[in-house]
């Protein structure tokens, strides 16, 4: 159920139940209802389902989740000497 796509608010008009705005999904701009995210500002990300912003996307949490996943990678590399070697090589290349 419930296809929800993240997009960036680029325009806001109206207020209350008629608060609407334009949301940019990587080049696709769609008019959506912002009635359920009254606190949202231009530049914020939201998740849109059937033409409604259902929540403001917490960008800080998104980055934290990704950072956390990167840490798993670090741990896994420690467990795998081959991968650690490859990672070192990659870093060395990057330095050149």
């Amino acid at each position: 159920m419930c296809l929800g796509i993240p997009g960036k608010v680029i325009e806001i008009t109206g207020e209350g139940v008629t608060m609407t705005g334009k949301v940019d999904f990587d080049g696709i701009v769609k008019e959506v209802s912002l009635a359920y995210v009254p606190e949202i500002s231009i530049g914020d990300y939201t998740i849109v389902h059937v033409g409604f912003a259902i929540t403001q996307l917490d960008e800080k949490a998104a980055l934290e989740t990704l950072a956390h996943l990167q840490e798993i990678e670090a741990v896994a590399i420690e467990l795998d000497p081959g991968a650690a070697l490859a990672a070192e090589e990659a870093i060395a290349k990057g330095d050149e």
């Binding site: 796509i5 999904f25 990587d26 696709i28």
Partner: peptide, 8 residues
């Protein structure tokens, strides 16, 4: 952009 439209 086509990819984004497909996602949407």
């Amino acid at each position: 952009t086509v990819a984004a439209a497909c996602e949407m």
